[in-house]
Amino acid sequence: MNQRPFGQTGKVVSEIGFGAWAIGGSWGDVPEADAKAALHAALDSGTTFIDTADVYGDGRSERIIAAVLKERGGPRPFIATKAGRRLDPHVSEGYNSANLNAFVDRSLKNLDTDCLDLVQLHCPPTEVYYRPEVFEAMDAMVASGKIRNYGVSVEKAEEGLKAIEYPGVKSVQIIYNIFRQRPADLFMREARAREIAVIVRVPLASGLLTGKMTGNTTFATDDHRHFNRDGQAFDKGETFAGVPYDVALKAVDEIRPFVPSNVTMAQFALRWILMNQGVTTVIPGAKNPEQAKANCTASDLPPLTDAAMTALRTLYLEKIAPFVHHQW
């Protein structure tokens, strides 16, 4: 597994991490045994970065991670969690010192640790990025020893650009994939210039870029791909990267000829992301050991060809960008 520096922290992490949303909830039923086996497989394959959140399964994801690490013993991987989405209503005013400290205290307990490696503000309202006192509260938690580092998880590239103006922000998590290429235009360059770690989520566009979905694919009622296609529960860009399902399926068919015969489309899509040196780590999810192992092997693939990269850029600009580029 190849490693990349995690921004200014002095840490290095695996360029393929483990996204722990699916083992928490909102992706259909994932039995705890399968969730643990998937995480074990990722760690056995060289993953040293895990991303979770306090709201994934109302803490289930964090607790499963803690249980697996207790079973394994030895050095802990770098664990990133998130705070803020427990607010109800989810409004800017809720991002205050008291609430954020309470959320962090809960994650400390769930993850069975006395200090969190990284806490990310969890896609807060845009106004939060213009409130210095929020970032001062995070600085205070670093000073107190509750957290080692903090960052932000953003919906829009502009939010990421604003966030990295605060000197305490060490990382930005953002959606970036073949169907969401805008972050590479400016954000990635600025983040790299400032030595900000970039965590890439939704790398497979909620499974579309596995190439396994069809017009007849169905999803469980508790799967966000069933209930959030139009943003009914949270930002629609988190589901299928915001691309209309039928449009995306046609684009997937245009990608297939560029995928080598000995590589899955999912691995190809992950390798595409790693072509950008501004990326620190990419966090695909996995519901079982086979998926986790397959994700990790993307780190060992050779670079994509210039022809493939050019074709994928053209496909994005002509077929996908009109639906997503201006929104995120």
Results as ranks from 00 to 15, higher is better:
Val200Asn: 01
Pro125Asp: 05
Arg148Pro: 02
Met188Asn: 02
Asp114Met: 14
Glu158Asn: 11
Val119Leu: 06
Ile199Asp: 00
Glu127Leu: 15
Phe187Pro: 00
Glu195Gly: 10
Gln181Trp: 04
Ala191Lys: 06
Val142Glu: 04
Ala197Thr: 06
Gly151Ile: 03
Val142Arg: 06
Tyr150Ser: 03
Leu186Val: 15
Tyr129Asp: 00
Met138Asn: 02
Glu158Ala: 15
Lys162Gly: 05
Asp139Trp: 11
Arg148Gln: 11
Ile178Asn: 00
Val128Ile: 07
Ile175Met: 13
Gln181Arg: 14
Met138Pro: 01
Tyr166Ala: 08
Tyr150Asp: 03
Asn149Asp: 12
Phe135Lys: 00
Gly168Asn: 13
Val198Met: 14
Gly145Arg: 12
Gly160Arg: 00
Ser144Gln: 13
Phe187Thr: 01
Asp112Val: 09
Arg182Phe: 12
Asp185Cys: 07
Leu116Arg: 02
Asp117Met: 05
Val128Gly: 00
Gln120Trp: 04
Leu161Gln: 08
Leu116Cys: 05
Leu118Tyr: 01
Asn177Met: 07
Phe135His: 01
Ser144Lys: 14
Ile178Leu: 15
Gln120Thr: 10
Arg189Cys: 09
Lys162Met: 14
Leu161Thr: 07
Ile178Lys: 00
Phe135Thr: 02
Glu190Ile: 06
Val198Gln: 03
Ala193Arg: 12
Gly168Val: 12
Asn177Ser: 13
Gly145Asn: 13
Glu155Val: 14
Arg131Tyr: 04
Met138Gly: 00
Pro125Thr: 07
Val200Lys: 01
Ala163Glu: 05
Tyr130Thr: 12
Ser171His: 11
Ile178Met: 15
Glu136Leu: 15
Arg194Val: 04
Val119Phe: 06
Ile196Leu: 13
Lys146Trp: 07
Tyr130Met: 09
Ala193Leu: 13
His122Cys: 02
Val198Asn: 06
Thr113Gly: 11
Val200Pro: 00
Val200Ser: 03
Asn177Leu: 08
Phe179Val: 05
